[in-house]
Design a protein around this nucleic acid. Structure first.
Length: 464
DNA sequence: CTAGCCTTGAAG
DNA sequence: CTTCAAGGCTAG
């Protein structure tokens, strides 16, 4: 189906888009900044070759030509000695800190004079208003200040690294956990139930669309879980690190914090095309996620694009699991929950919506929001050797195998050799169901009026 | 609050 | 391994 890249001009475009998107995210924003134009590249070329010219029109700043040889960078705000770029302008440390503290404040102090105070290294403290104004004039960008979420993610990463380093010395023994069951699931003899009285033992993944068999889940209770440490795999350090990395990448980008109400507005939609457009942010996150995967970065651009395109729907579907509230059969949104039934009718694709929600319910039950597992599943779906237009399927298959194995090992380390088998096969089954679900969605997407869809989404979904 | 110093992760 | 650019911490 679906043609392929809208030919030449655009296809080159896309990767470019990816990288811009990526860097725009790197820069923070958090709230999708619409123009992700300039970024580090531009910045660095600027510093690399000097060339003032652009930047803030106004260049009262002394010394136009700071050919930084090394030690002569000058703060564009106050003229103090500068270290380098801070928030997109060369500034000293104090102006950097000043900007960080003040740029986001809503109630700025007023200037007591004429809004034109001289700002230099001595006077910079006197008028915060003019100092801040100056900061913006010289091109400092408040979007580059990390927002709450990003800061948290960063801190989390730091903490995790620290922890990891600490562990490193004695790799041998810390691995066995006290309670090996981070994922606990009780056996459920799930029948294709429709909607029974609706408490949690009910829903199981009976995807109406694809041919899915009900899963039989392992019984993991304190009694059935092996006590003997030998029943658990000990992950190699690299494996642990890899899982950790993926998980962090996942949480930072696609996952959000499982229990937190960190939900984004793009998850709420009321019609199918809106859904697609609202997924744009999610797509950017996906891009950001995959770019954190070394194996992905290692592929050719063509393969990267093809991979991305072929997994995008599946990835979005997978991600939606995070926003599914199984208890209430609702979608979590920033403004509260929306019962799935509401959306189901709003979108007008009832069956598909049912399939989708029951898929989410099932997967959620299976993974119990374990971000390690979700991250692995996401990764596995990214490297899908079956995608369209792939130039090197074998490589992709090999990479996928790596992660499949990693998943298996991870499960063995978490739930024991004994239980991991069933677990593993269940997860694989969910992954393969995803394919059908994705295709069903794709089919429907094709019916959507394409001029209502944003260009990025058109392109990435091959809707043109 | 400021401003200097420090720690980090990412990128080169 | 080095450099860059974020954030954190804290004496002043």
């Amino acid at each position: 189906m679906a043609a392929e890249l809208p030919s030449s001009s655009e296809s080159g475009h896309e990767m470019e888009m990816c990288s811009t998107i990526d860097s725009s995210f790197l820069q923070g924003s958090g709230s999708e900044s619409s123009e992700f134009s300039q970024s580090r590249n531009e910045v660095s070329s600027y510093s690399g070759q000097n060339e003032d010219s652009n930047s803030s029109s106004s260049d009262t700043v002394a010394s136009k030509k700071f050919k930084r040889s090394k030690e002569d960078k000058i703060c564009l705000v106050c003229g103090d000695k500068a270290l380098g770029y801070n928030f997109n302008a060369i500034t000293c440390e104090s102006c950097k800190a000043f900007f960080r503290r003040n740029a986001l404040k809503s109630d700025q102090p007023k200037c007591l004079f004429q809004n034109d105070c001289l700002i230099d290294v001595r006077t910079r403290r006197f008028c915060p208003h003019c100092r801040l104004r100056r900061c913006f004039e010289v091109g400092m960008k408040k979007e580059m200040i990390l927002d709450e979420t990003e800061r948290k993610a960063r801190m989390q990463k730091v903490a995790m690294n620290r922890q990891m380093k600490q562990k490193h010395p004695q790799v041998g023994e810390i691995i066995i956990k006290q309670e090996p069951v981070s994922i606990s699931i009780e056996a459920t003899s799930s029948m294709p139930d429709t909607q029974s009285g609706g408490d949690e033992k009910t829903t199981f993944p009976t995807v109406a669309f694809g041919n899915s068999q009900p899963l039989i889940l392992p019984t993991l209770t304190p009694d059935t879980v092996p006590k003997d440490p030998k029943m658990y795999r000990i992950l190699k350090t690299e494996e642990k690190m890899l899982v950790e990395e993926l998980s962090v990448a996942y949480v930072e980008t696609l996952g959000g914090f499982a229990n937190e109400t960190h939900v984004n507005k793009e998850e709420s939609y009321s019609s199918a095309d809106e859904l697609v457009n609202n997924s744009e942010i999610a797509v950017r996150r996906l891009i950001k996620f995959v770019k954190k995967i070394a194996q992905f970065r290692g592929m050719s651009q063509e393969n990267q694009v093809a991979c991305l395109k072929s997994c995008v729907l599946n990835a979005l579907l997978l991600r939606s699991v995070n926003f599914y509230d199984a208890e209430n059969d609702a979608w979590k949104t920033p403004t509260g929950s929306i019962p799935t039934s509401v959306l189901k009718h709003a979108t007008g694709f009832n069956d598909l919506h049912d399939a989708h929600t029951s898929y989410c319910a099932g997967l959620k039950k299976l993974t119990r929001d374990d971000s390690n597992i979700m991250a692995l599943i996401q990764t596995i779906t990214v490297f899908n050797p079956d995608g369209q237009n792939l130039e090197n399927r074998q490589t992709i298959s090999d990479i996928q195998d790596q992660f499949i194995q990693l998943l298996r090992h991870y499960l063995e380390s978490e739930v024991s050799f004994m239980h991991s088998q069933l677990f593993f096969s269940n997860i694989l089954q969910k992954i393969s169901e995803l394919k059908g679900l994705g295709e069903d969605h794709a089919r429907i997407l094709l019916q959507i009026n394409s001029n209502k869809i944003e260009p990025l989404m058109l392109e990435i979904l091959n809707l043109q």
